[in-house]
Design a binder for these strands. Structure first.
Lengths: 346, 346
DNA sequence: ATCCCGTTCTGAAACCTTTCAATGCAAGGA
DNA sequence: TCCTTGCATTGAAAGGTTTCAGAACGGGAT
């Protein structure tokens, strides 16, 4: 640990006024140099620019926004910044925003309602031009209120019954169906669904799709074991693994469909650590096909979602909503794809 | 795809002035209700608050900032938002910021210089109170300029020779040494270091630490094979694996130390896919100990860094720099820890 | 009745930028 | 010489908030 002196805090920052003074021109001219350089003669422009660098002028964006009423900034409120699925979605948004010359702020609600509310409040006060969000609760009145108050919102990866937003989703019900159909095809007859809490729309939808396929295969709904988790995390996957191991042998499933890859990876670790073989003793299907699924202890079969496209599309919808006066809200739905790997193929 | 009508864009948003008018009080009183409610009589306060909700008043933070000259907002410019190491660091920062009642914006430079510059420029213009950053190039004059112009900067996970910032690092040289010492202890005599580009400080430091340990073990520097990668990603890890496989059998290393876990995981996948056994045919050590390291095809030995503590400490330093008039810059260095798993233990 | 004090409320100034109507100026045409 | 035209520049107003010196008011003490 070494110590040094602190950054200067005293000096007021130079404003356009200071620049104008130094360059011997008026405020308006400085502003013109900044925003319409073509309207300024070469000589004065050069003089003004010199003054700017000499003073170390940094435009005060908050003042500009105040005057202009828009910020050219979007924000994406992520549900869980440590889940690679969402960072990939964020990347899609980022690229679209960059192309449109917009700044993007990422916020992390960390799955907590209170944190999400705080972020939304702050973003609205910051007057961002629009908000993309994967909400904790898509039906929250909060979101509706925000659009009513004039900040457009696009829902990412969540369905919503409200007509106040654009939304971009993947057909989770279909994804759930694909996972179970795959397991049924492989001959499994004792199958579990691992995921929770059911307050998460995805968890419900994937479960329903799973049930659909399960019934279509001639089974009874109630035969599909549902192991609830507290969250969709690696840790919860491990816990679920222990729960399964606790079942009497003949009630134990031969295959498991997990609500996402984090849960599947946790489950996989727990299962392997107890000496069971995957898929011989237990087949596992995950969801999302994050980059680490293919590199897992046993490469994971997973339902892939078009993550970047999801983000890009959401951003494009928001851009349209902001710029296009006769924008109409759209609900875009993508289709998932099953990627079969060793964890079910053996 | 269904369509609906757009969000209202026309209506000007209500300002304190509108609230004042409606509540039959002056501007100042509304401001007092907002900022010093105790100085306002219960009756008027209630009246003003009612007016606010009736009008759907949302405070204009940009105007407030303009007036106050501070924003109560930090930003963290991440080097790679898809690398779990950085999202964990971000989480540490987030928690510290939340505790101090500060908003945090995350930006992703994606390892690109241009994107980083754009973000920094924008943040500075936004007048954030401080910037945390894992820079593409810690020696960049850009960073120095920003502090000179009055925005404090804290460097996260990168060393810097400049005395203008606080910084928080982990002893990478020691980490590199630990990795190689571990491999030497396990009896390996043909070892490779995989990582690049060398323009990344980490890549260099870990390599140097590795060389130190290698020499101490009685080997010649030049015997430590250095396989360069273009980036620290899973994909580049795979490529490196192919390169190694291309070596003549007797020149091939029996153990590899990778500059981070993403590279190690990519390498691991490639190696396994060609039918080699880990660690019998090739032992692998990673770096960072991200959550997915333990759950890899072969659980990965890795050098763990205190990720959240890194972020938390960085945020605390920045908070001190912003609030404490006689703040002094500090360089905090954490110590890494080797976590041995199957990928080297067999 | 007068004075003083504390509480509550007021309104103008300041923060920094953009915009726009108006001004100044030089060159070209009549 | 006088007008016109077009370009370069100016300066005040506006945008929404906070601050602060001071006004208004009510009540208690004298």
């Amino acid at each position: 640990m070494s110590k040094r002196s602190a950054t200067p805090r005293n000096a007021r920052r130079p404003s356009v006024k200071d620049v104008a003074e130094r360059a011997q021109v008026s405020l308006g001219t400085v502003s013109n140099v900044l925003n319409r350089p073509d309207r300024v003669s070469a000589g004065t422009r050069e003089r003004v620019e010199r003054a700017m660098t000499e003073l170390g002028f940094v435009l005060n964006e908050t003042a500009r926004q105040l005057r202009m009423g828009r910020s050219n900034t979007f924000a994406y409120v992520m549900l869980d910044a440590t889940n690679p699925f969402f960072t990939d979605v964020a990347r899609g948004i980022e690229l679209a925003a960059e192309k449109a010359d917009l700044s993007l702020f990422l916020c992390n609600s960390d799955g907590r309602d209170a944190r999400e509310r705080a972020h939304l409040e702050h973003l609205q006060q910051q007057r961002v031009d629009g908000i993309l969000i994967t909400p904790v609760d898509p039906e929250s009145a909060e979101l509706e209120r925000i659009t009513l108050q004039g900040t457009p919102v696009v829902i990412v990866d969540r369905a919503t019954t409200s007509g106040s937003f654009c939304s971009v989703t993947v057909d989770d019900r279909l994804g759930g169906r694909m996972a179970i159909e795959h397991l049924v095809d492989r001959g499994h007859t004792r199958v579990a669904y691992v995921g929770g809490p059911v307050s998460i729309g995805q968890v419900r939808e994937r479960y329903e799709g799973a049930c659909d396929a399960w019934r279509d295969a001639g089974h009874r709904d109630t035969d599909l074991i549902h192991v609830q988790t507290e969250a969709l995390s690696v840790e919860e996957g491990r816990v679920a693994g222990e729960r399964l191991a606790g079942l009497p042998k003949r009630a134990r499933p031969t295959a498991v469909f997990c609500a996402n890859d984090l849960v599947a990876l946790g489950l996989l670790q727990q299962v392997i650590s107890t000496g069971q073989r995957v898929p011989q003793d237990l087949a596992i299907v995950g969801y999302d096909d994050i980059a680490f699924a293919a590199g897992a202890a046993v490469p994971l079969t997973s339902v892939r979602q078009p993550r970047q496209a999801l983000g890009r599309t959401a951003a494009d919808l928001l851009i349209d909503e902001v710029n296009n006066p006769d924008h109409e809200h759209q609900q875009v739905e993508f289709t998932p794809e099953l990627i079969a790997r060793v964890s079910t193929l053996g």
